Simulated scan of single mutants.
Amino acid sequence: MHLVLACLIRRQPGRTHPQEAAEVVDILWAHATAADHLEHARAHAHPSRVDLLLFLRETADQDPQHQAATLLARCHRASPLLRERYRPPAPEYGQPPAPLTPLTSGHLTSPTPEEDTPS
């Protein structure tokens, strides 16, 4: 499993509304395909951006950053709400790419029993 941190930058910073993060996650799921390997998504809205945590199934032939960028670009193109609120996330739109950062090595690992025990 890969874990990718990404963000959508607002066109105009402003107040967030309570359902904003859920709306973005719903849009991701509405436009995700099996080829995206999306397992889970979390979002947190801020006045200037929405942070996304994308859990992607590991594949031998795809880079998780590329998978996430492809999914976000497709969602932005397809969703009037995302186009209205957020800057395009991919360089093909003439904008700098949204930060996509795999956490640690990009793999999730379970803690060993020794690591999981509080000291």
Rank of each mutant, 00 (worst) to 15 (best):
L8H: 03
E84K: 08
A73V: 00
A6I: 08
Q62N: 08
G94F: 12
T117Q: 09
A90D: 14
P97W: 15
L3S: 01
S105N: 03
P99G: 06
H107R: 11
H31W: 12
L100D: 10
A73P: 00
S105F: 05
T104W: 06
L54M: 10
A6D: 11
R77C: 07
E39G: 01
T59H: 11
A78R: 14
A69N: 15
A73F: 08
P88M: 13
A35R: 14
L28R: 08
L81P: 00
L71Q: 10
P99E: 08
L100Q: 14
E84W: 13
C75Q: 13
C7T: 09
S105Q: 11
V24I: 06
V25F: 04
R85G: 00
H107Q: 06
P89C: 15
L53I: 06
T33Q: 12
P97A: 14
V25W: 06
L53A: 09
P47I: 04
A6C: 09
L81A: 05
D26S: 05
D63Y: 07
I27H: 10
A34M: 03
L3G: 00
L100Y: 11
V50F: 08
R10S: 02
T109V: 03
A69M: 15
L53H: 11
L3Q: 03
V25A: 03
P18T: 13
R57W: 02
L72Y: 14
D61G: 09
G106L: 03
T117Y: 06
T33G: 01
P18L: 12
E39C: 02
S119G: 00
A6H: 13
T16R: 10
D26T: 11
H17S: 07
R42D: 01
A90N: 11
D26G: 11
L108R: 08
H66Y: 13
H46W: 07
D116Y: 04
H76M: 10
E114Q: 08
A34N: 03
T104K: 02
P91F: 05
P113H: 13
E58N: 08
V50T: 10
P64H: 09
W29L: 06
D63T: 12
H37W: 04
A41P: 00
P89A: 15
A90M: 10
P96A: 15
T70G: 05
T33L: 10
R74C: 01
A22G: 02
A60V: 10
V50S: 06
C75F: 14
